[in-house]
Design a protein around this nucleic acid. Structure first.
Length: 462
RNA sequence: UGCCCGGUAGCUCAGUGGCAGAGCAGGUGACUGUUAAUCACUUGGUCGUAGGUUCGAUCCCUACCCGGGCAGCCA
């Protein structure tokens, strides 16, 4: 049996081919006098392969009724194209219509809004835009593993079901096998978690950080890359309830090293996608964000601006800009503040570090000033926070004090505190939102459009 | 969850208190190595849903549903 060739390989073919087979979906068809042009796409690349189907084919009447969306197998010869716009085309000797697509097929060969395509999430990867997005998503995931692998990091799979409800990163989804209509109750009438599947209350993870710390304190340099779940009722273009996150964790590393790693990481990912998804990025630059390529190149060239939280507050206060929410030391930076820093003031990624201890979680290392902790956030234009990280508190007594200050009971964190009891070391890490990074490199402005089947409040169809 | 904007043909959108419109897609034909092909003709509607005001509502009012933007939570 003749082996099929992908459209991508066909278009890159070094020579003509006599025995040629391509399989894919019809994007568009045009009739000429004695033949029909069929453009076939199989998702291997953005471009289509042009097929010349002569009227002498036995099923030519059927071919003339091919519409956008139909699936075909084309056997023939790969030959140099007479027309403009493509090097190679297929002179068909046999066109097998595998599956037709009638007039109800929702995709057309021109202009669809992302909002419409979201409603047909099962068909949208057949569009140019979403094909490009998901090819880029795949490459970005690969680039992440490549980056860490080349630097000696160990990939750790942290649990998706967790018993810890105090990770400090928002609302959690409960995991239970209880009969919700009739759960086992204790004597006091409350639901008996001890009789649940894991003999305790469990949730979907909101972060693998605490577990990653355990492995960093053994394998030195580790990272996680997996799904996380947050039950927040967020309705914005940059929040989803199921998303993927990368969390490197490095032993013998301080905040400075952490910031260096984050910057190196973000730049490496941009560089990789820039060279390996060039064709798809051209599409984004043309139809999604005209300034995309210039911005990506600019980010690669320049060091990220680093400012302490205290400096950032001063800069914002002295900017003369009137904000809806006034800036004040001790409060969280609002979106408008972050955007002003990264989009107006510096026009490049900004790393803000050393935040007041009151507004950051318990595990961040207390600075000598006793006022700030070693937190750092990387802000990028158009998206805002893309990285959040810190050096972790490695001193047992200080960590326990932090917990009490956050109204957490150290007894609930026995294993986590053990990491400080036995051979504690300074260590640091961060979380990078995979989808936010993908938004940044594609210019796509809604997180729902970079996830194959997005989960957002009220939406889990598909 | 709050505030704002929207919902009219398969898609993108006009429109009006009194017979429902265009472009694209689909169909038919013409033309043609075309490439978002072109030209002519043509099919296609519960005007988001339910109430209300009115002689009459797609239009005005109310509620709800759905979509989008922004904010909070964060990645």
């Amino acid at each position: 049996m003749l082996k099929s060739t992908s459209v991508k390989d066909a278009l890159n073919s070094p020579s003509a081919q006599d025995a040629f087979l391509v399989q894919g979906w019809v994007r568009t068809r045009r009739d000429a006098k004695t033949f029909s042009f069929i453009e076939v796409n199989d998702g291997s690349c953005l471009k289509n392969l042009q097929v010349i189907a002569p009227s002498t084919l036995a099923n030519y009447a059927e071919i003339q009724h091919l519409t956008t969306g139909a699936s075909v197998a084309v056997r023939g010869k790969l030959i140099a194209s007479q027309g403009q716009g493509q090097k190679w085309e297929v002179a068909a000797e046999e066109v097998t219509v595998i599956g037709t697509a009638d007039a109800t097929y929702p995709l057309q060969k021109k202009g669809h809004t992302p909002e419409f395509l979201r409603e047909i999430a099962h068909l949208r990867p057949r569009s140019n835009l979403f094909g490009a997005v998901f090819r880029t998503r795949s490459r970005l995931a690969f680039a992440i593993h490549k980056f860490f692998n080349e630097r000696g990091f160990v990939y750790v799979h942290t649990p998706i079901i967790t018993g810890s409800d105090c990770e400090g990163a928002g609302e959690l989804f409960r995991v239970t096998t209880h009969d919700l209509a009739n759960p086992p109750k204790r004597e006091d009438g409350l639901i008996d978690d001890a009789k649940d599947f894991f003999a305790r209350r469990t949730y979907l993870t909101v972060s693998g950080q605490l577990e990653a710390e355990a492995f960093a304190c053994a394998l030195s340099k580790v990272y996680t890359f997996g799904p996380t779940f947050r039950a927040e009722n967020s309705n914005t273009s940059r929040h989803a309830n199921e998303f993927w996150m990368i969390e490197p964790e490095v032993a013998f590393c301080d905040l400075q090293g952490d910031m260096d790693l984050a910057e190196d990481f973000v730049k490496s990912l941009i560089r990789d996608v820039r060279t390996n998804c060039a064709e798809d990025l051209e599409l984004f630059a043309k139809f999604v964000d005209k300034e995309l390529l210039a911005r990506l190149d600019f980010v690669l060239e320049r060091p990220f601006q680093r400012v302490s939280y205290t400096e950032a507050v001063e800069l914002l206060k002295n900017s003369g800009k009137v904000f809806e929410y006034p800036v004040e030391y001790g409060v969280n930076l609002q979106s408008e503040h972050e955007r002003y820093l990264t989009e107006v003031m510096f026009k490049c990624p900004v790393t803000v570090y050393n935040y007041p201890k009151e507004i950051k979680p318990f595990y961040m290392r207390l600075n000598d000033d006793d006022k700030t902790v070693t937190a750092m956030d990387v802000l990028v234009p158009g998206i805002g926070e893309i990285v959040g990280g810190s050096q972790r508190e490695e001193r047992l007594e200080v960590l326990e004090a932090n917990m009490r200050r956050h109204h957490l009971d150290p007894k609930d964190y026995g294993w986590y505190l053990d990491l400080r009891r036995y051979g504690t070391v300074p260590h640091a890490g961060f979380g990078l939102g995979f989808e936010r990074m993908l938004m940044f490199v594609t210019g796509v402005s809604n997180i729902r459009d970079v996830i194959p089947f997005a989960r957002t409040p009220g939406n889990a169809a598909f």
